[in-house]
């Protein structure tokens, strides 16, 4: 009986290990490729051991100007997170604390926005942005990213505010705090781990987003994902540099994701699973 159980456990670990190998192999290969020369990158049989070079990173970020794309990505990400949280927190708080008869309607409206395909919003946003001259501006792309992230912030933070006992608010109210003060001084600090998770989610959404950025940004505001197709030239795809940029795009995301792992699921189901 016990032996049987042990064997089963080994089987489970084996399954998990195989699963992980499959899940990580393509990414591992990408990272490896980023350190290869062009001839090594295409070598058959594939080279696992090779003379590593940083030339792909140097060429992509210094010569091809991906440093600027990196900077643009950071600016757009920070602005999206900052404004998204600034607008979304009060609303999330209101859903948690000041319930009204219209809540379900409003929440439904938020979900609707969240699940709208990017292409559905990209078309009118492009036409409208061009009318108000916001193409290739940080304002334009940040607006587009907020449109997707705001519903997300509200849904996610609503869950975190719900988890804070209402008695705390009432105690503060008795002490003469205004509601706004209760919200800002008491409940927001209490929800800070959730806040961090929400911020990370927004950051990742904005950081990885491609289609909107492709259409709304231009030479001065292009993000890293938008710069990548430029490496697919008729004179050959520059895989090494694509891999280098891909690696750089992914690493911060992975670090953040591990940091807020605990709240990952809540975020990705919009609070439906905690």
């Amino acid at each position: 009986m016990k032996k049987n159980k042990k064997r089963k456990l080994i089987g489970i670990y084996l399954f998990l290990i195989i699963f992980l190998i499959l899940a990580l192999l393509p990414y591992f290969w990408l990272v490896l490729t980023s350190f290869k020369t062009r001839v090594d990158a295409f070598a058959i049989p594939p080279k696992v051991f090779f003379k590593a070079t940083l030339s792909n990173y140097r060429e992509a970020f210094l010569d091809k100007g991906f440093l600027m794309n990196l900077k643009n990505s950071i600016i757009i990400m920070l602005a999206t997170v900052g404004i998204g949280l600034g607008l979304g927190l009060p609303s999330a708080y209101a859903f948690s604390r000041f319930k009204t008869g219209k809540d379900s309607l409003l929440l439904n409206y938020l979900l609707g926005t969240r699940f709208t395909p990017v292409v559905v919003l990209a078309l009118p946003l492009y036409l409208l942005m061009s009318k108000v001259h916001l193409l290739d501006s940080f304002v334009g792309i940040v607006i587009a990213h907020i449109a997707f992230n705001l519903p997300f912030v509200i849904w996610m933070m609503k869950g975190f505010f719900d988890a804070i006992p209402k008695e705390i608010d009432e105690a503060a109210r008795v002490d003469g705090y205004s509601w706004f003060k209760v919200f800002l001084r008491i409940d927001v600090p209490l929800a800070k781990s959730g806040l961090a998770a929400t911020a990370v989610f927004c950051a990742i959404n904005s950081w990885n987003e491609f289609l909107m950025a492709l259409i709304l940004t231009g030479r001065h505001t292009a993000t890293m994902p938008v710069g990548i197709p430029g490496l697919l030239t008729p004179q050959g795809t520059i895989w090494g540099q694509i891999a280098a940029v891909g690696t750089i795009i992914t690493i911060p995301v992975l670090i953040f994701a591990v940091l807020v792992q605990k709240h990952m699921i809540a975020g990705m189901t919009m609070g439906a699973v905690k």
Binding site: F19, W207, N208, I249, T250, V253, L254, V258, Q261
Partner: peptide
């Protein structure tokens, strides 16, 4: 933690 990696990679990548 390792399982998280695939969904964190940008779809374009």
């Amino acid at each position: 933690s390792l399982t998280l990696i695939p969904m964190m990679v940008a779809p374009l990548i």
